[in-house]
């Protein structure tokens, strides 16, 4: 990544979320799945969005894609800017020209995202016929070319197979081929390797990186796996209970995590612990989105929480000018001793 793509550089963000809140109004109450989230993705960079189940990382991405089931889900406040322009006022019809074209998304389980009754070739062709107005024949040629680009052997025959005839890794490659078929500026990858074996995961991460180098697209990589982030991301936003609690470059975050939750996540990793040594687990569990604690939402699991944390929500503040590393914690001094 060149310096011009870093936050300090001159480049404008491709995608920016400003204080976005997406709530679900359910019988059990209002689930504030995303509740005031801001992050930026610069051209050509990969932003890793990390968090546990229920942290709101997927819902923030689905909000960008306008794929949040509504009702019950609504964007309550905030803004989503793409190339500097708000996506929210755009009509559904106009939005379809962006979704799948300029912004594409891949999911954890390609089998449920792919249509089982169409050949993979049909499914790749669909996007370019819709968005680029290609003829059926040209779209088929394009589909074969895309399959070749994502590393599927003998694409000329594979183009006519159905999703169930492929392995999980192959299906994820097909998903990527569909997503890449219109040459998007932003690829949102929601846990793209979670269901895959570690060997196949490595292949898929390499593939996404190669495609990114070729096309210069940005990637929003959503994952619960810090190791995947370390491999693939340039910047990282850590989410907890509907909020971003820390944002930094990947090197900075892994070297000097500052938020007690981020520190806790690292200490939970068996990867970094010595064999036989006890893991330092974060006690308790992620609070329910219908009933977040007051003040700092992590305070119920935090070992250094005080009355201040219960009363006042800590804002996301910059550790140094420029906003390269931001943290939302009242007790950074104490946290540094964790």
């Amino acid at each position: 990544m060149s310096d011009s793509q870093s936050p300090e550089g001159a480049a404008k963000p491709l995608l920016e979320l400003r204080d976005l809140a997406t709530w679900f109004h359910t019988d059990e109450g209002t689930a504030k799945a995303v509740d005031g989230v801001s992050y930026k993705i610069y051209p050509g960079e990969t932003l890793g969005l990390v968090g546990e189940s229920g942290s709101g990382k997927s819902v923030s991405a689905l909000s960008v894609m306008r794929l949040v089931p509504s009702p019950p889900g609504f964007v309550e406040r905030g803004d989503i800017l793409f190339r500097g322009e708000s996506l929210l006022p755009i009509s559904d019809e106009d939005f379809r020209r962006i979704r799948g074209n300029e912004v594409a998304m891949i999911f954890q389980e390609p089998m449920t995202a792919l249509n089982p009754v169409y050949t993979v070739g049909n499914q790749i062709s669909e996007a370019v016929m819709l968005h680029r107005g290609l003829s059926k024949k040209a779209a088929r040629e394009h589909a074969i070319e895309m399959l070749r680009r994502v590393g599927i052997p003998s694409p000329e025959t594979r183009v006519d197979t159905y999703p169930h005839e492929m392995s999980g890794g192959m299906r994820q490659r097909v998903m990527i081929a569909i997503a890449m078929s219109c040459d998007p500026a932003l690829l949102i990858a929601d846990e793209p390797t979670t269901a895959l074996d570690v060997t196949i995961q490595a292949q898929i991460l390499d593939l996404i990186r190669e495609l990114q180098e070729d096309s210069g697209m940005s990637v929003l990589l959503i994952t619960h796996d810090l190791a995947v982030v370390a491999e693939a991301a340039h910047h990282v936003a850590v989410m907890y209970a509907g909020k971003v609690v820390e944002y930094a470059s990947v090197e900075e975050l892994f070297e000097k995590p500052r938020h007690p939750y981020t520190i806790g996540l690292f200490q939970s990793l068996p990867d970094l612990a010595k064999q036989g040594e006890r893991l330092t687990a974060i006690p308790g569990m992620v609070p329910s989105a219908t009933n977040f604690p007051s003040g700092c939402r992590f305070r119920t699991r935090c070992s250094i929480a005080t009355d201040l944390c219960a009363g006042t929500e800590p804002p996301l503040v910059s550790l140094e000018p420029g906003g390269a590393h931001t943290v939302a914690c009242h007790h950074l001094e104490e946290a540094s001793k964790l």
């Binding site: 570690v198 060997t199 991460l205 796996d225 190791a227 370390a230 090197e251 892994f254």
Partner: peptide, 12 residues
């Protein structure tokens, strides 16, 4: 090969 495929929680 299997071991080398494990991502490490260390960007360095």
């Amino acid at each position: 090969a299997l071991l080398s495929a494990i991502p490490h929680a260390d960007p360095k």
